[in-house]
Design a protein around this nucleic acid. Structure first.
Length: 999
DNA sequence: AGGTTGACATA
DNA sequence: GTATGTCAACCTT
């Protein structure tokens, strides 16, 4: 090898992993052999061998080798036994590809180099050094940071997936240090993937800063006592040895006795027939064709080569380690919050719900708070013994447990099913817990798992659904037995589908939500951790994750017993803790009136679903695709190059970097901001491209989120879309909707509204949409007691116009649109806990001007400023704010010393009582709606959707006229009698064939 | 494959 | 300035 030669070293092992995850999965047509990474690898090699000049490398290789890791054990394990100890097994469909890629390398007639005891990186380092000594240049084909230490004047790296060369400046840009300091930097930061320890708490940013200050690692460790930050200084001194070991682990060995001499790596012309034989065997048709053309070979005359597919256990690949570490998906949501008193109607709490004293708990001398405290203490200190759980496999035992539950009057109930979606789920088994530690699982339809080659056979020794359910059902609806559950809506809906309504019940997720909204999650995992100091078995540990997930009926019964009974046991214990907390904080009425009644109501709404016109969405999708494609061309034209328009990073670089457009601002991660607001401004200044991007984004957003995704949610049997409402997800008391989210269906633009027209009524029916008008401003007028606003609402005046008139002294008659819309923005701002910064942003005016508006507003409506000050003070004192119905929302960070965090909490605390009161009102309306419709002789009018201030119904055309006034009345009167609002509520209702026209 | 970010849909 | 959920791109396992 000589000066002017150019050596390419491909990091084969690194490429395999990256290609596997970055490229779409691909399987060989004839037999389904996974070959995605192999295909990417072959295309990359061919490109580099034939066409490297036209890549970002820009030079032609003279020497070429592909380097692999030999096995997981290397000399580094001698240095540090834990090195790469936490590696987990490669994915199953990647394993056969390791061998295929080595075969591919040979088919390309390229040296395929690996060596026991060394990593590919060490061999690469050695060859790069040898080439350098011979005066030649080297390109390392990899983007692995571990190789960046090798970059220098004659050595560069090349990322083939991004077609990007990495030289000294790129390393500095990415890591803040030049390549020769990469070893020191990695020694400081460590590497969690390879289990290199580093120094805890030091990341790349800090490491670069330290190296900038001290020059190198040795100096840093020597003079560590000079570091100013106390904590940092101490950890560095304490972990100096770890850093030194880490340095040895990350430093690559460049004097390995390599198996092939450098000169043997010389690149030969491709052996067309051999390569084509391999490619044909892999069924890579387009690459076969390209290779045939380039090498002048007649592909049809060549037989496919024989390919050996390695068996899994033979695979060389990175180590097969252990360690599933996962968190459980919790059915509950998360929230924030705190309360008051609702008192109206009859008390729905039966006497049995009274909290009976537990064994050993004195009957006298307990105040509610003391009881709550003693329960919490007891729960936290009692142990959870998984070995005590039982599996029920025969009818006599089941009957005995059911009798015991009846006797106790309370039972925790939990279902296990085949799906997280209650509309798709099939019951697999259920658990009962009668008192802490006394719990059992009843398997019903477990199948023997994959060990059985026939698969899917019924597991032995379990009751059948037909045997067990007739015994279970009466218990679930037994009025004298309280059923305790976690996220009961799921179980309620599931059981409703099977023909039983669960009643009475308590829901620990909702109890926690009412007691502690704002202080953390309300899933069983979070609650068990918080109240019982217990870590639940993660759901993932039971059913697996990713590709290896199995349906719950394939989980073996012993494992299922442990998992499921623990869930029921925990729910029961949580109930014992949370129930007295609600009582102690006067939150029972919030729970009983605003949460529990909604469980069956929402379950029925979810079960009903809504009709969506698949054809209409499909047509719209095609239209959007065409228009987006046209825009794409124009964008490339204007930009002068092709790029991924959907990548804000690439877009920002083109707009503000290469094209040098003015007015760029950075996001908090340092990228150019390309929000619609920024692009709109550029468009106003006459640039063409930003406008196109905004349009393109709108079209692709509509396409991907709505026209393309929604049809996938159409239930195969009902042919309707069934959303799911999260009851404990928000800090304010609002619901949220997911899978799909039907609370954000477009409405603002003409294009978007077309999506809305696809939500339709069944033939012969209409959709009725009823929504509260200005409900949040009305609540603000009430709680802040603002005479002008209350009068305006009482008179039915235009509230934004009145506001503008008060503020600017302009008469309402003939008021310019612009003036009114400014007042409207201010009104919204007030509800959101206004800041001059935010209002300025919204109106695109200077902050000073926005500040002046706010000042004027407070002068005209001093009650609002009083209300805001009172609310903040209350929250600072108590840690929470409350709605007019006593629901609490906790904002502990309102006491933060960081002014920005504190200000954020203050705005949230101002908004929560308003948003939350509105949420409470519509909850009350929903709880009463079905009864009111039945009473009005309209039992077939179905409530389908809730969108915060709107309810959507479906009704037979002939019922519409009668239904609308009932709906409107229930909604307008929803606050009464618990709260007599000093402002009327107004509801507008309309009916039509689709949601767009009804709204 | 999971997690994060930026963008954007709604009230 | 409030409250959400979803998607594509991107980074790292």
């Amino acid at each position: 090898m000589k000066k002017g030669d150019h050596l390419f070293l491909v990091d084969g092992s690194g490429y395999i992993f990256r290609a596997y995850h970055a490229l779409p999965p691909l399987t060989r047509k004839s037999d389904g052999l996974p070959v995605g990474a192999v295909s990417g690898f072959c295309n990359m090699l061919w490109k580099l061998m034939k066409d490297a000049r036209n890549t970002d490398v820009g030079v032609v290789p003279t020497h070429f080798a592909v380097i692999f890791d030999y096995s997981s054990k290397t000399f580094r394990n001698e240095l540090y036994a834990e090195y790469k100890a936490n590696r987990s097994a490669p994915p199953e469909d990647l394993i056969p590809q390791f061998g295929l890629i080595r075969q591919a390398t040979r088919a390309f007639e390229l040296p395929c180099i690996e060596m026991e005891g060394f990593e590919a990186d060490d061999l690469i380092a050695t060859y790069a050094k040898l080439a350098c000594e011979a005066g030649a240049d080297t390109t390392i084909v990899s983007s692995d940071k571990d190789l960046m230490q090798l970059v220098g004047p004659t050595v560069s790296m090349y990322d083939p997936m991004k077609d990007r060369q990495i030289n000294i400046p790129e390393v500095i840009e990415k890591w803040g240090v030049p390549p020769e300091k990469m070893v020191d930097l990695q020694a400081l930061t460590g590497d969690s993937v390879d289990n290199v320890p580093g120094i805890p708490g030091i990341g790349p940013k800090t490491a670069a800063q330290l190296l900038e200050m001290f020059g190198d690692l040795d100096t840093l460790l020597e003079r560590a006592s000079e570091i100013k930050q106390d904590k940092r200084r101490e950890t560095i001194i304490a972990n100096a040895d770890k850093a030194r070991i880490s340095r040895e682990l990350v430093r690559l060995k460049n004097d390995v006795a390599v198996p092939e001499p450098l000169d043997d790596l010389v690149l030969h012309p491709a052996n067309g027939p051999k390569l084509i034989g391999y490619l044909k065997a892999m069924e890579f048709t387009s690459l076969t064709r390209r290779v045939a053309e380039a090498t002048g070979t007649e592909a049809s005359e060549i037989e496919p080569a024989t390919i050996t597919v390695q068996r899994v256990e033979d695979a060389h690949g990175p180590d097969v380690g252990a360690g599933a570490d996962s968190t459980s998906p919790s059915r509950g949501g998360r929230a924030a919050g705190a309360g008051g008193v609702v008192d109206d109607g009859s008390d729905p709490t039966p006497a049995l719900r009274a909290d009976p004293p537990l064994k050993g708990e004195g009957k006298a001398g307990f105040t509610p708070s003391a009881l709550a405290q003693s329960r919490a203490d007891a729960a936290a200190s009692s142990k959870i013994d998984r070995s005590a759980y039982a599996t029920i496999r025969d009818l006599a035992t089941l009957q005995a447990w059911l009798a015991e539950a009846r006797e106790a009057g309370i039972v925790a109930f939990r279902t296990e099913t085949t799906s997280l979606d209650p509309m798709q789920a099939e019951l697999v088994g259920f658990s009962l817990a009668i008192r802490p530690g006394r719990a059992a699982y009843v398997p019903l339809s477990h199948r023997s798992s994959a060990v059985d080659l026939l698969g899917g056979g019924r597991a032995p020794d379990q009751l059948s659904f037909d045997e067990a359910f007739p015994l279970l059902a009466p218990l679930l609806s037994d009025p004298s037995v309280l059923k305790v559950g976690q996220s009961t809506k799921y179980d309620w809906l599931l059981m409703h589908r099977l023909g039983v309504d669960i009643a009475p019940f308590d829901d620990t997720m909702l109890m926690s939500y009412v007691a502690d909204a704002g202080t953390g999650g309300h899933g069983i995992d979070a609650l068990a951790e918080r109240w019982l100091g217990h870590a639940v078995i993660p759901f993932k540990d039971v059913v697996g994750s990713g590709k290896s997930v199995v349906s719950f009926d394939l989980v073996d019964i012993e494992r299922a017993t442990t998992y499921s009974t623990e869930g029921a046991d925990l729910a029961l214990r949580l109930w014992q803790v949370l129930k007295p907390r609600l009582v102690a904080n006067s939150l029972m009425s919030v729970y009983e009136r605003l949460e529990k009644p909604l469980v069956p109501v929402l379950a029925r709404m979810e079960e009903r679903g809504v009709s969506v016109d698949r054809q209409m969405l499909s047509r719209l999708s095609g239209e959007l695709a065409q228009r987006a494609a046209a825009l794409e061309d124009e964008v490339y034209q204007l930009a002068g190059e092709k790029f991924t328009i959907g990548s804000p990073k690439q877009l920002g670089d083109i707009l503000f970097g290469r094209m040098g457009l003015p007015g760029g601002t950075k996001t908090k991660s340092g990228q150019w901001s390309t929000t619609a607001q920024v692009l709109e401004e550029l468009a106003t200044e006459g640039y063409e491209l930003p406008r196109k991007i905004v349009d393109w984004r709108q079209l692709t957003k509509l396409k991907s989120t709505y026209t393309d995704a929604l049809p996938g949610y159409i239930h195969p049997e009902t042919k309707r879309v069934h959303t799911s409402y999260a009851m404990a997800a928000t800090s304010t008391g609002r619901l949220s909707s997911n899978e799909p989210n039907l609370q954000n269906i477009p409405i603002r633009t003409a294009e978007g509204r077309k999506v809305r027209t696809a939500f339709i009524a069944q033939p012969g029916n209409k959709l009725i949409s009823a929504d509260y008008s200005q409900i949040e401003l009305r609540i603000l007028a009430h709680v802040a007691d603002i005479p002008q606003l209350k009068a305006a609402f009482a008179n039915g005046d235009d509230i934004h116009a009145i506001t503008a008139s008060e503020m600017f002294g302009v008469p309402v008659e003939g008021m310019p649109r612009e003036v009114r819309s400014r007042a409207k923005a201010i009104n919204f701002g007030i509800v959101y806990g206004i800041s001059a910064f935010g209002l300025a942003n919204q109106l695109s005016i200077p902050r000073e001007e926005a500040g002046a508006y706010i000042k004027r507003y407070f002068e005209r409506f001093p009650g609002i400023r009083d209300y805001m000050d009172r609310t903040k003070a209350f929250c600072r004192d108590t840690g929470y704010v409350e709605t007019i119905f006593g629901r609490r929302a906790h904002y502990p960070e309102i006491r933060a010393s960081n002014p920005s965090i504190r200000a954020n909490s203050e705005r949230a605390a101002i908004n929560a009582p308003i948003q939350g009161s509105a949420a409470d009102i519509i909850r009350r309306a929903m709880a009463r709606m079905e009864g009111a419709l039945v009473e009005a002789g309209l039992p077939d009018v179905r409530m389908l959707l809730q969108v915060h201030d709107e309810l959507v119904f479906e009704a037979a055309a002939e019922d519409v006229e009668a239904a609308m006034p009932v709906i409107v009345r229930v909604m307008e009167d929803a606050a009464m009698p618990a709260v007599a609002l000093s402002v009327p509520l107004k509801v507008d209702a309309r009916a039509a064939d689709n949601w767009d026209e009804a709204h």
